[in-house]
Amino acid sequence: MRHLLLPALLFGLCSLAAGQSDEMQIRDDVPIETYLALLAQVAPPARDGAEAYMAAFKARCGRAMTTIELRKAFAEGSGNPTLMAMIRAAHQKDTAAMQRLSASITCPRG
């Protein structure tokens, strides 16, 4: 039963965000620690996956990801596919998948 909770929770979060995405603009930035603490309260694997995603982003892109960038990765469409896969890998404790996914992080242009 527990293994069904995380996908359902993530689907709900992404559905809510997707329903608002046309009009929603993420403007206010909160400290990354605050955002990660909130994720941990909702779903610990979401925090673990987000932390792994942020670490891979920093390693590949040469800078830390901002809270707004992370929030957008969660909120746009059905969520960034790499981030969502990293959350699943964190939930399944699949370190091989996590390493593979870390190599697929793309850096923003600009």
Rank of each mutant, 00 (worst) to 15 (best):
M1Y: 11
M1G: 14
H3Y: 14
L5Y: 02
L6C: 02
G12P: 03
S15G: 06
L16N: 05
A17V: 01
A18T: 05
Q20W: 11
Q20A: 14
D22F: 12
E23A: 13
E23M: 05
E23K: 10
M24A: 14
Q25A: 13
I26P: 01
D28K: 02
D29P: 02
V30G: 00
V30T: 02
P31Q: 06
I32P: 03
E33K: 09
L36F: 14
L36I: 12
L38P: 00
L38I: 15
A40V: 03
A40L: 11
V42E: 11
A43H: 07
D48V: 11
G49E: 11
A50S: 15
A52F: 08
A52N: 10
Y53R: 04
A56H: 08
F57V: 00
F57Y: 13
K58S: 11
A59W: 01
R60A: 11
R60V: 02
R60I: 04
C61H: 13
R63G: 05
R63E: 12
M65Y: 03
T67W: 04
E69N: 01
E69W: 08
R71H: 02
F74V: 15
E76R: 10
G77N: 08
N80Q: 15
T82A: 10
L83A: 08
L83W: 08
I87T: 07
A89S: 09
H91C: 00
Q92I: 06
T95I: 09
T95A: 13
A96W: 06
A96C: 01
A96Y: 05
M98R: 12
Q99K: 13
Q99S: 14
R100M: 07
L101D: 03
A103Y: 13
I105C: 03
R109H: 08
